[in-house]
């Protein structure tokens, strides 16, 4: 299974020195499929690799540099657009890591620009962004209504000249999800990172990433998201001895104790994330618990040709991800509407 191989090399890049060609082919295919090729390339920068592998890794590092430059420019453009309405630009996910120079941003694939804004300022932000050249991606009224009623973000918008998407979040998880993290508190605790940009606090960054990994997603691309959490934890814990205590405190305040704890257990098991166990004031350890093994099997479901294996398990997670976000009747209605239009959870 190449998912396991990828994880092993990310955890200990020196292992790459012993790979045979068939393993290299599987590793590269899995890393590309998981969008971790840039991260892998950065980690292997100082490791001796076969001559045929160097150009592949050099390309991936170059591509990641470009991704980063483009993401920072999009953030700059959003800040320019939103300057008039006075709402601070709080970056989420990849763009935040890149803008703040965090380890999680090194080599990371970024994609869309994600920002978090206060729910009561949504209309102002929407107007400012639409006035600066972004436009709605889908003119479909069902999808639009679905987003506005149930989701945690506006329907996606794309810039008509630069062809880049922006996702404007007003809360952390869909409004139908079981957990309701406190987005207002996250906004209040956001920190400035220069050039008119902000990001979440160290604890909230992990709460946000864990919420999306465990509570929201179908775990597609989960290894990458878990790698983010691994890097965020390592960096924060290195400068703050009591970091995991404050992390669990924040997680509890957001109602995200379970997702955060599970994310830490998975990261610790797969990436050897240095976590701290506690007996008091709270009791936390990181040995695997019920259900974790299914998550791990799902995360590592990738064969030597970069294909997702274990189709049934994947389907279970697809239904599960909708189940978590929506009450059952709503789920049935949503799937029905999607299927009538020919969408299938392949």
């Amino acid at each position: 299974m190449s998912g396991a191989l990828l994880v092993a090399v990310l955890r200990n890049p020196a292992e790459a020195a012993d790979l045979v060609p068939a393993e290299w082919n599987a590793l590269i295919a899995a890393a590309r499929a998981e969008r971790l090729i840039g991260t892998l390339a950065v980690l292997l920068q100082d490791i001796a690799v076969p001559t045929s592998i160097s150009p592949i890794l050099t390309d991936a590092r170059g591509e990641a540099e470009r991704e980063k430059r483009q993401a920072l420019w999009e953030a700059d453009r959003a800040a320019a657009a939103m300057a008039s309405c006075g709402v601070p630009v709080i970056l989420l996910k990849g763009t935040a890591y890149a803008a703040a120079g965090l380890r999680a941003g090194e080599g990371r694939f970024i994609g869309d620009l994600d920002i978090l804004v206060p729910r009561d300022r949504l209309a102002d932000v929407e107007a400012a962004i639409l006035g600066a050249g972004w436009e709605w991606v889908k003119p479909d009224p069902y999808d639009d209504d679905y987003y506005r009623r149930w989701m945690h973000e506006l329907p996606p918008m794309i810039h008509k000249e630069r062809d880049r998407m922006i996702d404007i979040h007003h809360t952390v998880l869909p409004l139908t999800a079981r957990q309701t993290p406190d987005a207002a508190a996250m906004i209040a605790n956001a920190i400035a990172i220069g050039h008119g940009l902000h990001m979440l606090s160290a604890e909230d960054r992990i709460c946000h990433a864990a919420a999306h990994l465990i509570a929201d997603g179908d775990l597609a691309g989960g290894l990458r998201n878990l790698w983010d959490i691994h890097c965020l934890c390592g960096e924060a814990a290195a400068v703050d001895e009591g970091f995991f205590l404050s992390l669990f405190e924040r997680a509890a305040a957001h109602g995200l104790t379970d997702p955060v704890w599970r994310a830490l257990r998975l990261a610790h098991r797969l990436y050897a994330t240095p976590v701290t166990a506690y007996r008091s004031p709270i009791s936390v350890d990181y040995s695997l618990r019920g259900g974790d093994r299914f998550f791990i099997a799902r995360l590592l479901a990738r064969d030597g040709w970069g294909r997702e294996s274990r189709k049934l398990l994947r389907f279970a997670f697809f239904v599960r991800s909708h189940w978590l976000r929506m009450p059952p009747m709503m789920l049935a209605r949503h799937l029905w509407t999607k299927w009538r239009k020919g969408h299938r959870p392949a």
Binding site: W24, I28, A29, P50, S52, I56, G306, R307
Partner: peptide
């Protein structure tokens, strides 16, 4: 053949 048996790209017909 590719140098060292390592390919730049994987293609799948499935």
């Amino acid at each position: 053949q590719p140098v060292d048996g390592v390919a730049d790209f994987t293609v799948r017909l499935e």
